[in-house]
Every structure is written in C-alpha cells, then in structure tokens.
Amino acid sequence: MSAPRIILCMKWGTKYGPEYVNRLYAMVRRHLTGDFKFVCLTDRSEGIRDEVQCLPIPELTLPNGEPERGWKKLTTFEADLYGLRGTALFLDLDVVIVGDITPFFEVPGEFLIIHDWKRPWRITGNSSVYRFQLGAHADVLEKFRQNQAQAKADFRNEQAYLTDVLHKQGKVKYWDSSWCASYKYHCIPTWPSSYWRDPIIPKGARILIFHGVMNPPDALAGRNNGNWRHARPATWIAEHWRE
C-alpha cells in the first residue's frame, strides 16, 4: 500500500485571506489524481472550507522585530507533526496550478525542491514547492532551534538554510526544470515586448510560482506593484486560480 499523500500549506497573519487556501485546495483537487489529505497550518482558520484540516502552526519563537523570511515553514519538519504520516507536498499559498501535479508524488528522492532560477549555479532551492516524508528531517528544525542566531547570520532565509543542510547530507534533488515556472521570469515576455504581448503559460509548466511583489490578483489585473517587469493582464489566471 502506498504512503498517504498530504498536501501542506501554511497561512499566518493577514497577508493572505482564506480564499487563497480555498482556491489552492480546489486547484489541487482538479489536478491531483486519487486520494489526498489537505492540511493548512494556520493561526486563523476562519472562512477556510471544510475539506481542509486546519492545525496550529507549531511553536517557533522568533525574536521580536526580526524579519520573518519564512522561517516558520521549517516547522513542517517536526519529528511528529500532529501524528500525520506519509509523503507531504508543501505548496505556497500564492502558487497557481495549471497542470497535472500527480508526478510530484512519483519522482524518487528523499527531498525535492525547486532549483532557484535567478542564480542556478548555487544549490539554493525555492521552497514554494517541496516534498518530503513527514518526520524524516527533524534534524533540520532541531538544528535551527538550537542555534537560530547563527543560522540567520549565515543564511538570508529559510529556503537557503534548508537547502544547505539537506544538500550536505546528500538528500537534495530538484524538480524537472519545466514543472515549476516563475511568473516573473518565465511567463512575462521580455522587455520591451511585455508592453504589447500577453503573459503566457510556459510549455511543460505545472505550477506557476509568484515570488517577490506580485501575486495572482496582480497578474490577473496587470499590476506590477513596483516590480521592474511591466506586464499586461494575464486574463487566463482566472481559469485556474478559482474554487
């Protein structure tokens, strides 16, 4: 019998409303074959649909005033995450799923993550999409808890730290480079044609990643939010980013 499949996401504070969780669930349901459990680690469960199991974000004390930079995501590596067992695929709330994500559970490997697009010569992964066995990498979190000041001095954010620790253990593998596309780098046409050409879904893309200042509503409306890449409205976002 194959291991249970868990979709994990995390929502804290007020930056993202419950509609992000609800739409993410709906996109997964449309694009993942077979059974799965959908879990949201959150401090605010109001408005989240019933199919989603909401659980508290495990405690991770961060000094007041320090930038969060995603460090809370490391709590997905708890040795015992509320008794959950199986293979977990973590998805950021602001991704847009545009193709079959069943293969994300089929690729062999202990830990899979996006290879950062901006500086591909580095080992750093982008943690918008990563997969692991629940409870298998508790040392990642424990090491951070024991010496988070040093981790923050050495690494800008959680994904740089996470990739470094597991790469040194020989456990990091990267997704097929076409599967997770950056909206910023791969969907928006190059300047100056971005002023008259619409954004596209790149060939082979299954999940679109929104990093930096743009989110799906911005892409849909054609707002750049100060992002240097001008972009026309991507009206096709509405076909995918919905319940």
Score class of each variant (00 low, 15 high):
residue 39 V to A: 01
residue 127 S to V: 01
residue 146 Q to P: 03
residue 33 T to I: 04
residue 73 K to Q: 13
residue 24 L to A: 05
residue 108 P to K: 15
residue 24 L to T: 02
residue 132 F to A: 00
residue 91 L to S: 02
residue 65 G to V: 10
residue 105 F to Q: 08
residue 144 F to C: 06
residue 54 C to E: 05
residue 53 Q to E: 15
residue 52 V to P: 00
residue 139 D to Q: 13
residue 110 E to C: 07
residue 89 L to D: 03
residue 39 V to G: 00
residue 24 L to H: 06
residue 95 V to N: 01
residue 153 A to E: 14
residue 111 F to I: 02
residue 136 A to R: 10
residue 139 D to E: 14
residue 48 I to Q: 02
residue 40 C to R: 05
residue 117 W to M: 07
residue 23 R to Y: 12
residue 27 M to N: 00
residue 99 G to L: 10
residue 154 D to Q: 14
residue 103 P to C: 04
residue 105 F to M: 14
residue 150 Q to G: 07
residue 124 T to C: 03
residue 57 I to H: 07
residue 151 A to M: 11
residue 150 Q to S: 12
residue 127 S to H: 06
residue 44 R to Q: 14
residue 136 A to V: 11
residue 123 I to Y: 09
residue 34 G to T: 09
residue 152 K to F: 11
residue 95 V to S: 00
residue 51 E to V: 12
residue 77 F to H: 14
residue 132 F to C: 00
residue 123 I to N: 10
residue 92 D to F: 05
residue 47 G to D: 05
residue 17 G to N: 07
residue 47 G to C: 04
residue 46 E to C: 08
residue 48 I to K: 03
residue 116 D to E: 15
residue 134 L to H: 03
residue 72 K to C: 10
residue 117 W to E: 09
residue 153 A to M: 11
residue 85 R to N: 13
residue 147 N to V: 04
residue 59 E to G: 09
residue 101 I to N: 00
residue 104 F to Y: 13
residue 130 Y to M: 03
residue 26 A to M: 08
residue 99 G to T: 10
residue 89 L to F: 10
residue 95 V to M: 07
residue 75 T to H: 09
residue 59 E to T: 13
residue 70 G to Y: 04
residue 130 Y to L: 06
residue 147 N to L: 02
residue 30 R to T: 02
residue 29 R to E: 08
residue 93 L to E: 01
residue 61 T to R: 12
residue 94 D to C: 11
residue 142 E to P: 03
residue 30 R to L: 02
residue 33 T to M: 02
residue 138 A to K: 05
residue 113 I to R: 04
residue 56 P to T: 08
residue 53 Q to H: 07
residue 83 G to N: 08
residue 148 Q to M: 14
residue 121 W to I: 07
residue 21 V to W: 04
residue 36 F to N: 02
residue 102 T to M: 02
residue 91 L to Y: 08
residue 126 N to A: 03
residue 97 I to M: 04
residue 126 N to C: 11
residue 148 Q to F: 14
residue 26 A to C: 13
residue 118 K to N: 10
residue 89 L to H: 06
residue 144 F to P: 04
residue 135 G to H: 01
residue 94 D to Q: 07
residue 21 V to I: 15
residue 76 T to P: 00
residue 21 V to E: 00
residue 78 E to R: 10
residue 20 Y to H: 12
residue 145 R to P: 08
residue 54 C to H: 06
residue 81 L to T: 01
